[in-house]
């Protein structure tokens, strides 16, 4: 077989695989959008409708209406996720910087130790977390949800950022100190700006993680309506015998929108940050 043919086959196989993965991941999304556009109550009509015969926005109207008010949940989720992102980036970066740049014993071990904590399934920590938040008097309040989520996100943020910081030349810090800045000044003015791509990717991961978080939100929320985040609010769509998949789908689509927007806007940075690994400490 000639070289050109082999190349063509290689390209075709690659395209085919990409399409396959694309279809695999896009199908649920398509079905949710499809369902959300059906008239509530007509989701299960046989034969299956691959696209609603009559596109209806009724589900969206209902979900935004006085019964469900998903916009409140989205607002709560935005508050929680942005606070978690900002705080975990800040603290996680400080930890990562310490581990990547300072000389001390057991630095790799301390990073690993954090990862162990981060890999704990939430179900294991949920009870003690609940007790802790209760003793802080934060049950049913947004800060009670934000604080533990920050703790959940710090391990992965510091993991990503440590790889990023370790790749920056040490001389930059020395130069900053000689130019008259304290270590924190150097961190803030020299290191952080250079770590922007890493911050974006770590930030998106932290945002997504806390956006989709369900168990903690349900437990700490204590059923308080005004502090429901999106996943908890969508659970609330099932009322007695009244669960309408069109509502759920509409809620999911609306909660996906900000995330998709976020990733589309920052994707260039996110990808650059994620491929920055392969670093020695």
């Amino acid at each position: 077989m000639s070289k050109a043919w082999r190349q063509r086959i290689h390209v075709l196989t690659s395209v085919f695989l990409v399409l396959l993965i694309g279809v695999f991941t896009m199908t649920p999304l398509y079905w949710i959008v499809n369902t959300s556009l059906k008239e509530p109550g007509t989701e299960f009509r046989i034969p299956l409708e691959y696209w609603p015969a009559k596109v209806s926005l009724q589900a969206y109207r209902d979900v935004l209406g006085p019964n469900f008010r998903i916009q409140d949940a989205i607002r709560n989720s935005v508050i929680v996720s942005s606070s978690v992102t900002v705080a975990s980036l800040f603290f996680g970066s400080l930890a990562a910087y310490t581990i990547a740049r300072l000389r001390f014993k057991y630095k790799i071990q301390s990073l690993m130790f954090m990862q162990v904590a981060g890999m704990m399934p939430a179900i294991i920590t949920i009870a003690p977390t609940f007790v802790l938040i209760r003793s802080l008097g934060l049950l049913g309040k947004l800060p009670g949800l934000i604080l533990p989520n920050i703790a959940y996100c710090i391990p992965v943020v510091s993991w990503l950022m440590a790889a990023y910081f370790a790749a920056l030349p040490f001389e930059l810090e020395d130069a900053g100190k000689m130019d008259g800045y304290t270590p924190f000044g150097v961190f803030w003015r020299v290191i952080m700006p250079l770590a922007t791509p890493g911050l974006f990717s770590a930030g998106v991961i932290a945002f997504l993680g806390s956006w989709g978080e369900f168990m903690l939100a349900l437990t700490i929320g204590m059923g308080v309506r005004t502090m429901q985040t999106v996943p908890v609010a969508i659970l609330g769509f099932s009322r007695n015998f009244d669960l309408q998949w069109a509502w759920v789908s509409a809620g999911v689509v609306m909660s996906l929108a900000p995330i998709i927007l976020l990733v589309v806007v920052f994707q260039r940075w996110v990808i650059r940050g994620l491929t920055a690994g392969a670093i020695k400490y």
Binding site: P169, E171, L172, D174, A175, G176, M178, D179, V190, L194
Partner: peptide
């Protein structure tokens, strides 16, 4: 003030 081998420009 210090000048570094690899310049260490920001």
């Amino acid at each position: 003030a210090m000048v570094f081998q690899n310049y260490a420009l920001y």
